[in-house]
């Protein structure tokens, strides 16, 4: 596991003996990561339905504060984590990328819900962005529609495990000259310009959506509009059943 490499190599028995005497052994990486991952402060950024589950996670029953994500900050400058909860539309994408750029390092991103991962149920719309990972790097994808509050807590724990596996020497924000700011797309006449950021995301080779999906008008399944001027068609009366016995002409017995 990536995070276990940061644990100290001291033998477990010796560790517990020392701990009884009040001496804790750890590595610098583990200590640093423990501090960072136990107090991730998310930014208040709910877009759609998943935002309500995020609020429910912050409420008393599921209580995200137990895991350190106590305060939802309103300003991106003060937040560590952006939980993109809800559908990202093309109109909203420049704002999302701008907010991500404004966050200070170290920063993480969780996409919550099917819509921000890949467009979700609205993938075939003309205004839906098929996943925010086209423009910004995402650390944890959390599927669901909407994911339950427990799932969001599990996603947060996965992120914490990922943080546990990071090393100080190799972290991006301590490298020289690194600035994790991504190009903010423009709104063009048909959609976003560019459609995706090739440094961040590449289209999949096995994506056959284009061939399988098309609106009935474009694919030619429907060709004419309904004519409401014509009077409504009366439902056809069921054809009278032929009598079972051809020689018996008497009517069937009447019900009382």
């Amino acid at each position: 596991m990536a995070f276990s490499k940061n644990k100290s190599q001291v033998d477990e028995g010796l560790k517990s003996e020392l701990a009884k005497k009040g001496i804790v052994t750890t590595t610098l990486n583990e200590l640093y990561n423990w501090g960072r991952r136990s107090s991730i402060w998310p930014m208040q950024f709910g877009l759609a339905c998943c935002a309500i589950e995020m609020i429910a996670t912050a409420c008393a029953r599921y209580d995200i504060a137990r895991f350190g994500a106590e305060l939802f900050r309103a300003s991106p400058r003060q937040a560590d984590l952006i939980i993109i909860a809800g559908t990202v539309t093309k109109k909203m994408t420049p704002q999302v990328v701008r907010l991500y750029n404004q966050m200070a390092e170290p920063k993480y991103c969780i996409t919550m819900g099917a819509c921000s991962i890949s467009g979700g149920p609205f993938i075939d719309g003309y205004n839906t962005l098929r996943g925010i990972d086209r423009f910004i790097p995402v650390d944890v994808h959390l599927p669901g529609c909407p994911p339950r509050p427990e799932a969001l807590l599990y996603g947060l724990q996965t992120l914490q495990k990922k943080i546990d596996g990071q090393e100080i020497a190799k972290t991006p924000w301590y490298q020289k000259g690194l600035k994790r700011e991504y190009a903010i797309p423009d709104l063009g006449p048909k959609g976003l310009i560019p459609k995706f950021n090739p440094e961040v995301w590449q289209p999949r080779e096995d994506d056959h959506r284009k061939e399988k999906y098309g609106s009935p008008m474009i694919t030619g399944k429907k060709t004419k509009a309904p004519d409401l001027d014509a009077p409504p068609k009366q439902p056809k009366a069921p054809a009278p059943k032929p009598p079972k016995r051809s020689d018996d002409a008497s009517p069937p017995p009447q019900e009382a």
Binding site: A183, K190, I193, P194, N197, P198, P203
Partner: peptide, 16 residues
């Protein structure tokens, strides 16, 4: 007609 969101076209390349 919706745009094809998987392929970059000339305007996108220029912008990038």
């Amino acid at each position: 007609q919706q745009e094809d969101s998987e392929v970059l076209d000339g305007d996108d390349i220029e912008w990038l």
